[in-house]
Write a protein that binds this DNA or RNA. Structure first.
Lengths: 165, 165
DNA sequence: CGTATTTCAGAGCCACTGAAATTC
DNA sequence: CGAATTTCAGTGACTCTGAAATAC
């Protein structure tokens, strides 16, 4: 129920990046562009980019507790709750107490969820295509590789355990 | 007076990026890492990363109106106000009504401001060094180039005028 | 006991909107 | 008149904290 905004017209896009070569700025600006694209495209079908991550994870790795889904997708445990609230309300996931560990919920992908995943995946691909439109295939992989390594590196320094099993 | 937070320890860094290969996610995660680093390092001397952009712009391109500084740095016009409030209160910039156009303020770099710029620049370099630590020189340039082109491309599509003079 | 899970309420930052007052 | 500048108040997204309730 959160994070599904409407188109969001741009008003005063600011800098002709003469000075904007600082990576931190570029990262923020790039993230904002991706956020805007995702919000528009996913919002158009009442979805959200986080839902793709959750559904994809369920599809790829099978059912899991909410904490495990958090670990798999990078969505914060607290935020996962509301993502799952929406997905459950729409019937895209099942959410049942784990009989083996009553602290947990077991989240499962439903059949409608599988269909929804296909739809959202398509949209996700479109977003990626739009976002990376200025790049050729090699450059896309380069960017993803560099960003992945950046995140990886800093995460492993902060929490020297979860280093991408 | 805004945006100077304290260290900000990380708590539950989430995903071992098995699934986190989506560029929008990576962009957000990378931005968050940069934001955290900047806040820590600049905050330690009571500064903010936006101040470097403004002071650098003044140093490189000379005095300008607030709107022009916005265009040069990419900081939003509304946000520029509070950045300049702080810089002016600390004596790092001058802010006087433009005699030639009474709508404008002319922002100038003061001598203390020049000294401050040197200090903040050093810190900015350190942040960049920490952020890009996992990369060699070629990769750093690659990442900055790719991000720059990404931003450039999308901005020019939204506002087909300000294309980085 | 300490640790893990689910959940909520909320903070902080960033990018951005909308509008008022002023001047061109 | 329309357009630009400064300013403020506020929105929404994202990441993340803190703590309570529960169960291991």
């Amino acid at each position: 129920m959160r994070g599904m905004t409407s188109p969001m017209p741009l008003e005063g896009r600011a800098t002709p990046p003469r000075l904007g070569r600082l990576p931190t700025r570029l990262l923020n600006q790039g993230a904002a562009i991706g956020d805007r694209l995702s919000a528009e495209r996913f919002g158009a079908v009442g979805g959200h980019r986080w839902q793709v991550a959750v559904l994809t994870s369920l599809d790829a790795f099978g059912p899991g507790s909410q904490a495990e889904l958090s670990r798999r997708t990078g969505i914060f445990r607290s935020d996962m709750v509301s993502v799952l609230n929406t997905l459950e309300a729409d019937g895209y996931v099942g959410r049942a107490p784990d009989p083996d560990d009553k602290r947990r919920n077991v989240i499962t992908l439903t059949e409608p969820g599988r269909t929804r995943l296909a739809e959202l995946s398509r949209i996700g691909d479109g977003v990626q295509e739009e976002l990376l439109a200025p790049f050729d295939e090699a450059e896309r992989e380069q960017l993803i590789d560099l960003l992945g390594r950046l995140v990886q590196y800093h995460w492993s320094r902060e929490r020297p355990s979860d280093d991408g099993s």
